[in-house]
Write a protein that binds this DNA or RNA. Structure first.
Length: 484
RNA sequence: CGGGAUGUAGCGCAGUGGCUAGCGCGCCUCGUUCGGGACGAGGAGGCCGCGGGUUCGACUCCCGCCAUCCCGACCA
């Protein structure tokens, strides 16, 4: 008997950890708060990377790589930036056996090193826009960590762009937010809310932070991606100027945007169940697995039959390594394999036994609903493809339904508190808010709920309404949630 | 940084001031099985977290340390 996953309803946190470890996505490393991303987890990251990278290239960005180590003084150049990151910096003080003249910080993000270089590369409006992305690791010394969601070291991409005007930079910020939204919804099958962050939640050094926010199955929100309009803050801190068409000198306008391996955590918490991981087909490294069912006497025949279907499926779905898997290992029983492949989240399973062989059929099982169906062998490739598409949309719709069922509007603070009361409380709660940061802090203190985003167009909707926290006229309709 | 818990075989755990430290799962070999986590037989695998103390004798009692996990305040 293999180990079982803690049921989601028993302990959500244990359930999550069980999925990560038992689906072999990651393992704890010897260093507190850091993890090893195992092949199955990394394959997922590679799918995410591959898709996003293409989307970045399609919007005009190129990749580069900036170094891990940053002179400590660089961090100090932008006041809010250093204040925001100081508590979570890892600092290198020695190198080559000697104490360094100036300590080096391990990047918590790369704005400073990048802008120090942009200063050298940008002189004229002809050098703009400069649109660079990098895939990298970063280190943030977190007090409390959680596999994939928050680890000391994590992988991400960070885009850093420079523009000749504020409007253009804002446009870029929103364009990349939209890229993230598209990716989350169309590939991860995870509906997200978009909007701007409140002052207290924005990135250290940004003028505005925009985010995509998703609702997890435990009714808590997860920030899945951010896009920042940095104004001229970094350009001024690093003195990055350019000559305009009419010969004047101006500081450039900046953006930065990123998503991280946290997306894997989001993926798990958005779709998975008590049988293990559930992956959207578009991101599943393995889309289909064939489990042949044979006895020693008929092993050869069944495997021949299975191989025919395997080849046909490879033709249909692609020949990438492990895209389709034929599990002909005879050291485990079919039942064991069913459970195992469900654990790792393969979207479609094809069961092939002597009975199917005799009737020229195949049993197809979809991971999202675990429904079985029997089809003609010739129909397998076509039907599997249909199922993959259907699973992709079903996962999205299911997540969207869940979000709808857990999105509320509060007309009074009493009502607001009710939504977040108790262990089962949560979800997205829309409420009119005056914009007062002290009220925001008090609400967090009292309910644990924070403002996730101020949705686009919310200011018009807030017109004429009263802030439920202060009684003042509302400026915004804010989305609150308990967050990861 | 506070609170809680745990360190014994790869994983999950049990254990007694004493003699050869156990159980389940996993692993290896052989055989029988194989349509929802099969079964039998045999086998490999241990600085009982680290350091000190008490004792004739410590995995066990005492002190200290370290580490990890979980829960809260800070954060993609």
């Amino acid at each position: 008997m293999a180990e079982k996953i803690t049921p989601r309803s028993t302990n959500y946190s244990d359930w999550y950890i069980d999925i990560v470890t038992q689906a072999k996505l990651a393992d704890y490393s010897p260093v507190k708060g850091s993890m090893v991303i195992r092949p199955r987890g990394y394959a997922l990251w590679e799918k995410i990377q591959g898709t996003l990278d293409k989307m970045f290239k399609d919007t005009g960005h190129t990749n580069a790589y900036f170094p891990l180590l940053i002179p400590e003084s660089f961090l100090h150049k932008e006041a809010e930036h250093v204040e925001g990151f100081a508590p979570e910096l890892a600092v290198v003080t020695h190198g080559g056996g000697a104490k360094l003249d100036e300590p080096l910080v391990i990047r918590p993000t790369s704005e400073t090193i990048i802008w120090s270089m942009y200063k050298k590369w940008i002189q004229s409006y002809r050098d703009l826009p400069l649109l660079i992305n990098q895939w990298a690791n970063v280190v943030r010394w977190e007090k409390r960590t959680r596999l994939f969601l928050r680890t000391t070291e994590f992988l991400w991409q960070e885009g850093h762009t420079a523009h000749g005007s504020s409007e253009e930079a804002v446009e870029e910020t929103l364009r990349m937010l939209e890229v993230y939204r598209t990716f989350a919804e169309e590939y991860m099958a995870m509906p997200v809310l978009t909007g701007v962050k409140s002052e207290s939640e924005k990135f250290a050094g940004a003028v505005n932070t925009y985010a995509i926010e998703a609702l997890m199955q435990d009714k808590r929100a997860l920030q899945a991606g951010t896009s920042h309009f940095l104004g001229q803050n970094f350009a001024k801190a690093f003195d990055v100027t350019f000559q305009t068409k009419d010969g004047t000198l101006d500081h450039v306008w900046a953006t930065s945007w990123g998503v991280s391996t946290r997306l894997i955590g989001a993926l798990i918490m958005a779709h998975s169940d008590d049988n293990g991981l559930v992956l959207p087909p578009k991101l599943a490294p393995t889309q289909a697995v064939i489990v042949p069912i044979f006895k020693t006497q008929n092993k050869a025949e069944v495997l021949t039959y299975a191989d025919g279907i395997y080849q046909a499926l490879r033709q249909e779905l692609g020949t990438d390594f492990n895209r389709v898997v034929l599990d002909d290992d005879d050291s485990n029983s079919p039942g064991w394999k069913f459970a195992e492949w469900e654990m790792v989240g393969v979207p479609v399973r094809i069961e092939l036994g002597p009975r199917d062989m005799e009737n020229q059929k195949a049993v197809l099982v979809r991971r999202d609903t675990r429904e079985k169906e029997i089809v003609e062998v010739s129909q397998v490739p076509k039907r599997v493809r249909e199922l993959l598409e259907d699973i992709q949309t079903n996962l999205y719709n299911r997540a969207l339904e869940f979000r709808k069922a857990n999105t509320f509007e509060a007309n009074s603070y009493e009502e607001f508190r009710e939504f977040f009361a108790g262990d089962g409380g949560g979800g997205f709660v829309l409420a009119p808010w005056s914009g007062d940061a002290k009220a925001e802090a008090r609400v967090k203190e009292e309910t644990k709920a924070t403002i996730r985003v101020l949705p686009f167009g919310n200011e018009e909707k807030a017109q004429g309404r009263t802030c439920i926290f202060t009684g003042e006229p509302a400026k915004f309709m804010a989305i609150f949630a308990k967050a990861y």
